[in-house]
Structure formats: structure tokens, C-alpha cells
Write a protein that binds this DNA or RNA. Structure first.
Lengths: 205, 205
DNA sequence: CGCTAGCTTGGTCGATCGACCAAATTATAT
DNA sequence: ATATAATTTGGTCGATCGACCAAGCTAGCG
């Protein structure tokens, strides 16, 4: 029997410890912001000493990198799941995707996290690269959704409109968080957004 | 003769000294980011000692507040100027406003500055309040522009669509900066955006 | 049993931060 | 010229940061 398997406490495996650290880092980023994301606060939240955190991640940048990968990966998977379960027609899947993104934005944590990510990416090349990767895949996926719904759009136009859609989503996220937004009636806004997506995908003018 | 007028070097008036400080702070925020915006770096860039900076602004927050007010005020005035000079018809003024915002986004400094502002606002109540003020006025102005172009829209719908427009603008800014963006063909994108604004303001469906 | 590898502690290091202040300097007014 | 006010200097303070490391602890191995 290997040592790892023999552990009484499964939460003490090395991978589980790393997971705890990433969870702690995410929680701090969401609840207290990037300015308070220090090796010490992460360690404290993870229930360990600062020195011990360095045993699992040599540098703070390694923690950030891992946390980022974990989060973006999950976000991408969540959206993909929504799309696949969205319905039979391409149009239904498009609207399911929009609903998925909007639902994600309902959670203050998600908005917070992404706002902090933008802040971090502004001057951290590693974070910036990861964000680019994420949005690049995000964008390609939306382009395909638009094309699936209306082949007549043509790829260049679909690419432009996908970019506008994503920009609008991200812009909305800025205004949602952290406190109740700029007196925007979100539900009505979402209907408007669905209608807008409809024209974006149908109008080939 | 007053003291200020008697100064040999006009750049040594108290107000001019403060202006120098705010310029230095803005430059640092744009070129090096909010993480490097410290009282010491600001003072160094303004050509004075850290202690002297505190003579003009008691706390770092005061510098940030003043810099923010200065910048947002200018931004608001620039857009307003564009609109007034935009043309005779309401529709021409709307498109002039869009061009103005897009032109502002062309400058990397502007994108940088706003990205850093969003980062600061995330956990600085004063910055957050100032941003809210700015976007609140921005939003109201766009609502009026939409209503001027097409009375038939009705205020609630105009408010929603103005919000979507602004969200799209701010979202685009995120993707523009700091480095060449996500392979987005910006000129074509801007045409698309004008067309989209057209449907937003005309379609009353 | 003792050995060893994995894990954890607690402390230190140099750097940077915002803030504060007494003293020195410079400009203006009398 | 002298007194007064405005400005500038240079240094210190306590706090926090990322990183580092020697020593101690623990669990499974032979």
C-alpha cells in the first residue's frame, strides 16, 4: 500500500493541500481583493503557516498561476455544459449560452473575481497571457455559435459581432460589481440583450 | 502686487505645483500601473521629495482623489465638446459621440488609465464613488442622445439600451489594452458598432 | 527499533509602503 | 533689515510584503 493511499485523512494528500491553498487564494481575491492577496493571508486562510505555503508553491506567482488556471478552466467548462444542454436548434443553444453567461454574472463572486483578474492582468504578464488564452477560446466559441445559427453571416462578420457581444458581457460585469449597480434594471436588460443578440445573428445587412 | 504674481517662475505657484503632482501621478498610473503608484514614486516623478508632496496633499488618497477628479472631468468635457460640434441632427450628434469615445479609446493611455481605475475602484470607496458619478452622468447623457434621435423609443428602453452601449464601450476598452488586442480588426469593428447603434436607436420593437 | 522522506514550524532578511515631523531654506511683507 | 509666512529637506517610525532557511515533527519503511 502506498503512503498516500494509507493516509487516514484524505484531505492531507499533497494534491488536496494544494487545492485548499487555491481555494483560499480564490476566496481572498473575491472577498478582499488583489491588494490583500499576500502569501501570508493565503496561508492563514488555508490554515497553515506562511512558510508551509512555500513548500507547496515556491513563489506567490505560482499560486496565482495555478488559481487562475483552475478558475478559468472551470468557467470554460461551465459554459460549454450550458451550451450542450441548451437545446436542439443552434439558436436555442445560442440563447442558452447567453443565459449561462448572465447567470454566472449574477453571482457577485464571479464578477469580483473577474474584476480582480483584469486588475492583476494589467501588470502581470503571466495573468495577462492566461486571460488572453481564455478570451481567445471564448471568442472562437461564440463565433461558432453565431455561424451555426446563421451561416449567411460569414466568418468575418461573425467574428466582429462575437467580439461586440463579449465586450458587452464583460462591460456589464464591470457595472454589476461590487455593489448594486448603476440603477440598471437587470432583468429587463437581459431581455434587451437577448433581442440584441437576435438582431446580431440574423441581420446580415 | 500679489505674491503669486510676483513669482519669477509661474510654475512655482501652489496650484501649479499641485498640477505637477497630479500629472506625475497620472503618468505613473498609466505607464507603471496602480501597484507602483506610491507617494515616493509620485514625488520623484514630480521632481520633489516625498515629504514635500505631503505638504500639498496630506495623504495619498487625496492625491488619488484629485487626480481622478481632474481626469474624469476632462474626459466628460471632451465628449461633450465632440457632441456639440457633432452636427445639426440628433443622429449626427449620436454618431459623433460614438466616434469621440472610440477615438479616445485609440489612445493607449486612456485605456490604461481606465483599466487602472477599475482596479483601484474595486477596493477604494472614494474612487468607486467618483467612478459611479462619472458613469452615472455618462449614462444619462447617452440616454438623452438616444431619446433626441428617436423619441419613440421611450425612456425606459432608451435607458436600457444606453446601458448596453456603454457596457460595450467599456468592454472594448478592456480588450484593447495594453497590447494589441485579441486579433480584432478594430476599424471594421467600429463600423459594426455604428450600425449596431443605429438599430439600437431605431428599432422600437 | 531506528531511518528517512515528507511535511511543518517559527523566525529572519531586506525592501517598500504611508505617514509624520523638526529643522533648514526661501520668499514676502513691514 | 528684520520678521513672518511659505516651502522644502532629510530622516524616522511602524507595518507589511515576498522570500528564505534551519530546526523540529510525523508517518511509513526496512
Amino acid at each position: 500500500m502506498t503512503r498516500a493511499a494509507a493516509r487516514r485523512d484524505a484531505s492531507r494528500t499533497s494534491t488536496q493541500r494544494r487545492e485548499t491553498i487555491l481555494e483560499a487564494a480564490t476566496a481572498i481575491l473575491v472577498e478582499e481583493g488583489h491588494a490583500r492577496l499576500s502569501t501570508r493571508t493565503i496561508a492563514a486562510r488555508a490554515g497553515m503557516r506562511a512558510g508551509n505555503l512555500q513548500y507547496y508553491y515556491r513563489a506567490k506567482a505560482d499560486v496565482v498561476r495555478a488559481m487562475l488556471g483552475r478558475y478559468l478552466e472551470r468557467a470554460a467548462r461551465a459554459i460549454e455544459t450550458r451550451i450542450s444542454a441548451g437545446g436542439a436548434t443552434a439558436q436555442a443553444r445560442l440563447h442558452a449560452a447567453i443565459d449561462g453567461v448572465l447567470a454566472d454574472q449574477e453571482s457577485p463572486e464571479s464578477c469580483r473575481f473577474f474584476r480582480e483578474l483584469w486588475a492583476l492582468a494589467a501588470h502581470d504578464p503571466a495573468v495577462d497571457a492566461a486571460m488572453r488564452d481564455f478570451y481567445s477560446g471564448y471568442w472562437r466559441r461564440v463565433v461558432e455559435l453565431l455561424l451555426d445559427t446563421n451561416r449567411g453571416l460569414g466568418r468575418p462578420r461573425a467574428e466582429r459581432r462575437a467580439a461586440l457581444l463579449i465586450a458587452m458581457f464583460e462591460g456589464l460585469m464591470l457595472f454589476r460589481s461590487p455593489r448594486p449597480p448603476y440603477a440598471l434594471p437587470i432583468p429587463a436588460l437581459e431581455k434587451e440583450l437577448h433581442a440584441l443578440a437576435e438582431t446580431l445573428v440574423l441581420d446580415a445587412c
